[in-house]
Design a binder for these strands. Sequence first.
DNA 1: AGCTCATGGCGAG
DNA 2: TCGCCCTGAGCTG
Length: 261
Amino acid sequence: MARDLTEAFGGRPVRVSSPQGRFAVEASLLDGTVLDQAEAYGKHLFVEFDPSRIIGIHLGLIGKFRILAGSEPTPPAPPRLRISAGGVAAELRGPQVCQLIGDAERRAVMARLGADPLRADADPELAWRRIHGSSRSVASLLMDQGVTAGVGNIYRAEVLFRHRVLPHLPGRELSRLKWNRIWADLVALMELGVRDARVDTVRPEHTPEAMGREPRVDRHGGEVYVYRRAGQACLVCGRGVRTEVLEGRNLYWCPRCQRRS
DNA sequence: AGCTCATGGCGAG
DNA sequence: TCGCCCTGAGCTG
């Protein structure tokens, strides 16, 4: 989204408004000014205006930020934030956070975030130290934005499946080798996700074409091994995919493919 | 039409 | 741990 916003509006004066109303005062302050660029860190989005005024955005669970070209139909609900220029409009609905901040506040947010697999400046060593010294489960640690920033419920379940790691394994029992492989995989998977704008985690040898099965595209639009497949047969071994609520979020894993290792 | 749940995270208790 | 924020999609009826 940051890349798309920068491409659509970067370096240009933009119209900024809040049809829904809750960002109206801030929007009027930015209206007509130049949008420099947008940047993402973990799940946070920073839309930067000249001079150093920033819209800090977090979509949360239900927020959506869409870029509509020309006369594409717009959803019925009025957007919290609307940015437009030259016939292109970006509309934000249902965000957990949308606020006008300065550079100091942005730095404070970034300072408490862990390693973001999508960023060149990511520090996987920092994440390793947190994981290696923790009795918490790797499933919990991967969802902790202070450990790995940007990893969410789908990538958590899928990367643990791909590396045959039981989600309940304490962080301190994860080997360095496993972590190195998991981190490299997160980088590859999430870059693929950005490229295709969907979450796909199934290896070539397990794709529907290779296995002679029907595609099982999840509602989020991608092909996955275990996420939201509770009770269905594991794509690799056929056992029923298990699920449980962990810290308020649904966790999925295969009890045969994933072991304490 | 109404209900439930969801790629998340905060504050209260 | 729970309730809540807030929108939309998928279900039921």
